[in-house]
């Protein structure tokens, strides 16, 4: 009974936190807004509805999407260190964006900036390369992870090279992009990210029971009725596309994808992926939304890149949960 109460309390806190993140945080920023002011000032209405709401929604969807993709990769590879960026997604996206910035491709394609297109192409390209490589070597998950680490490292080296040879203003722009952020997200960019992420979440919702089996090992999953190879392929490809969509709008925001699912595993030990996914999505979304709120309120009128906040706030929080946890840590 005590366990059940604890479970309900924790789930309630996560849901309330998500509610606060979505409905309260848009009032906070460089300009603090009040409900009363919102009804009377057109300037505040503009700030609230045109700037803050799409930004908050983008942060929530991006955080939730990154948390789900982290959860998926951790289960697929049975590796607690797997993150949305494990297969070189972050490296590929950053390289794509860096090349676009360096070559001055700052225009747009069907209303989407070329930098976003480049980062999406880089993210998906990196995963496809890693995946084809591992496929040619028998589709072993260890090969896949190692190839991902190598691609990420090579991309990082290439980004440094691009940094080195481009003019200072491009170099600064690249650096800022790599730090990630949801500032300046319009409704158009929110939709560009939210539609593929929404489709991804729907697909994952159908496939969640299969993830439960991946944690029991490939052999057992196979004999329990999972087409392991096909299922893993589907998960990897749809997850890569979703991460590509998120990164192309928000840049490579780190830590959310690794922190949120692990925090949920610790808060709800033994939980199967259906509930874990819901909690991870809400916690990831809440975490990134709060981090973004801190990023725009901590040093007004300047904004701190949200990637710095996610690492500085999320790191100690994660260590705290890890410290409080009794017994060994399992996926």
């Amino acid at each position: 009974m005590k366990k059940q109460n604890q479970f309900i309390l924790r789930l309630s806190i996560i849901i309330v936190g998500a509610g606060i993140a979505l409905f309260i945080t848009p009032f906070f920023g460089i300009k603090q807004l009040s409900l009363q002011a919102l009804f009377h000032s057109t300037e505040f209405q503009h700030i609230f509805f045109i700037i803050r709401i799409p930004r908050t929604l983008a942060a929530f969807i991006a955080g939730g999407g990154l948390a789900i993709s982290g959860m998926v990769y951790q289960a697929l590879f049975r590796n607690p260190l797997a993150s949305p960026y494990t297969l070189g997604v972050s490296g590929g996206a950053s390289l794509g964006a860096a090349l676009c910035i360096a070559f001055g491709a700052t225009g747009s394609l069907f209303g989407v900036s070329l930098i976003s297109v480049g980062s999406f192409a880089g993210a998906v390209g990196a995963v496809l390369f890693v995946y084809s490589f591992a496929w040619s070597k028998g589709n072993n998950s260890i090969t896949l992870l190692l190839a991902g680490v190598v691609v990420a490292t090579v991309c990082s080296g290439l980004i440094m090279f691009v940094h080195y040879v481009t003019p200072l203003r491009h170099s600064f722009q690249i650096m800022r992009w790599i730090m990630g952020g949801v500032d300046g997200t319009s409704y158009t960019y929110f939709l560009i990210m939210a539609i593929p992420v929404g489709i991804y979440l729907l697909c994952v919702a159908f496939l969640l029971p299969q993830l439960d089996h991946f944690l029991t090992g490939d052999s057992l999953a196979h004999t329990r009725g999972i087409n392991v190879a096909r299922s893993r392929n589907i998960f990897i490809i749809i997850t890569a596309c979703a991460i590509g969509a998120i990164v192309s709008v928000c840049g490579p925001i780190g830590f959310v994808g690794i922190m949120a699912p692990h925090a949920c595993r610790m808060l709800f030990p033994g939980t199967r992926h259906r509930l874990l996914a819901l909690c991870s999505f809400l916690l990831g979304g809440t975490f990134l939304t709060f981090s973004d709120t801190i990023s725009r309120t901590i040093a007004p009128p300047a904004e701190v890149p949200v990637g710095i906040i996610t690492a500085l706030v999320g790191g100690p929080f994660f260590l705290f949960i890890l410290y409080r946890r009794k017994g060994e840590f399992h996926l």
Binding site: T216, L220, I226
Partner: peptide, 27 residues
Amino acid sequence: SARARAKTIAYVPQKLDTTIPYSVYDF
């Protein structure tokens, strides 16, 4: 199909090579 095979054949391995994070009932 994978499901049809699982309805016909069940398998008990020598030992599990992984730590399973579920309760006995859920497993």
